[in-house]
Computed example of a mutant assay.
Amino acid sequence: MTETPNPRFYDYVTPVTVSRNDSYDFKATGPIRRAGLHDRRGRLLGHVWTDDHQAAGFTKIEDPEPDMGYAGGRVRRILADAYKAGIPAGGLLDPALYAPDFELRATPG
């Protein structure tokens, strides 16, 4: 009787196609616009950005306080939901998308 080896001990790896997440691209194809994202206490958490075409994302501030860690995951969920709802990248700087948990404020210049 020939025993079939456990696949985790194979000497080769079978490539697996992983479908891309339904989300905006992270590489801008042109100039970007951004807006500061603030928590309910008014602290800057980072910036939501978009190239107004197909790219968008969230960049956290450099030295976030320990209790600010939730913001990145929450904003990624907001962006994913917006993408699934068909909101174009150019519409992501709408403060209503982030309320009531966050306040999105236009960044000058």
Score class of each variant (00 low, 15 high):
residue 52 D to G: 02
residue 53 H to I: 12
residue 104 L to T: 10
residue 34 R to L: 10
residue 61 I to P: 13
residue 50 T to K: 08
residue 41 R to S: 10
residue 11 D to N: 03
residue 23 S to F: 12
residue 101 D to K: 14
residue 71 A to Q: 07
residue 18 V to R: 05
residue 24 Y to R: 02
residue 24 Y to D: 06
residue 74 R to I: 09
residue 16 V to P: 05
residue 69 G to A: 13
residue 29 T to E: 14
residue 37 L to Q: 07
residue 33 R to G: 09
residue 17 T to Y: 11
residue 86 G to E: 06
residue 72 G to W: 02
residue 12 Y to E: 14
residue 60 K to I: 08
residue 39 D to I: 14
residue 32 I to A: 07
residue 46 G to A: 12
residue 73 G to W: 08
residue 52 D to C: 14
residue 26 F to Y: 12
residue 51 D to E: 02
residue 31 P to S: 07
residue 81 D to V: 03
residue 59 T to C: 08
residue 17 T to C: 00
residue 38 H to W: 10
residue 22 D to K: 00
residue 87 I to M: 10
residue 76 R to D: 15
residue 30 G to V: 04
residue 91 G to R: 08
residue 13 V to I: 11
residue 12 Y to C: 09
residue 79 L to M: 09
residue 36 G to I: 06
residue 63 D to M: 04
residue 60 K to N: 04
residue 87 I to F: 05
residue 61 I to T: 13
residue 81 D to C: 06
residue 53 H to Q: 13
residue 40 R to F: 01
residue 31 P to F: 00
residue 67 D to I: 08
residue 77 R to Y: 13
residue 26 F to G: 12
residue 37 L to T: 14
residue 60 K to F: 02
residue 62 E to Q: 10
residue 66 P to I: 05
residue 51 D to M: 05
residue 90 G to F: 01
residue 70 Y to Q: 09
residue 78 I to Q: 00
residue 72 G to M: 11
residue 44 L to E: 04
residue 75 V to M: 14
residue 32 I to K: 01
residue 65 E to V: 12
residue 34 R to A: 14
residue 109 G to I: 15
residue 92 L to N: 08
residue 79 L to G: 03
residue 75 V to E: 12
residue 89 A to R: 03
residue 85 A to S: 10
residue 94 D to P: 06
residue 87 I to V: 14
residue 11 D to L: 11
residue 52 D to V: 09
residue 38 H to M: 08
residue 40 R to M: 11
residue 67 D to M: 04
residue 49 W to A: 07
residue 95 P to K: 02
residue 28 A to W: 01
residue 55 A to D: 04
residue 102 F to R: 00
residue 46 G to I: 12
residue 20 R to A: 13
residue 43 R to E: 15
residue 20 R to L: 00
residue 63 D to E: 02
residue 24 Y to L: 08
residue 30 G to M: 01
residue 43 R to G: 03
residue 84 K to C: 12
residue 65 E to Q: 09
residue 95 P to S: 11
residue 51 D to H: 07
residue 108 P to K: 06
residue 91 G to V: 12
residue 33 R to P: 02
residue 25 D to S: 07
residue 62 E to Y: 05
residue 54 Q to R: 15
residue 109 G to N: 10
residue 81 D to H: 08
residue 90 G to C: 10
residue 32 I to M: 09
residue 64 P to A: 06
residue 56 A to Y: 03
residue 13 V to N: 05
residue 17 T to H: 12
residue 39 D to E: 05
residue 48 V to R: 01
residue 69 G to F: 01
residue 53 H to K: 15
residue 87 I to G: 01
residue 102 F to T: 09
residue 22 D to S: 03
residue 37 L to K: 03
residue 98 Y to M: 04
residue 53 H to F: 06
residue 73 G to C: 02
residue 45 L to R: 09
residue 79 L to V: 06
residue 11 D to E: 11
residue 74 R to F: 11
residue 67 D to P: 03
residue 107 T to M: 11
residue 17 T to I: 14
residue 14 T to H: 07
residue 83 Y to H: 12
residue 50 T to V: 09
residue 84 K to M: 05
residue 55 A to M: 07
residue 100 P to W: 03
residue 36 G to R: 11
residue 45 L to A: 14
residue 46 G to W: 08
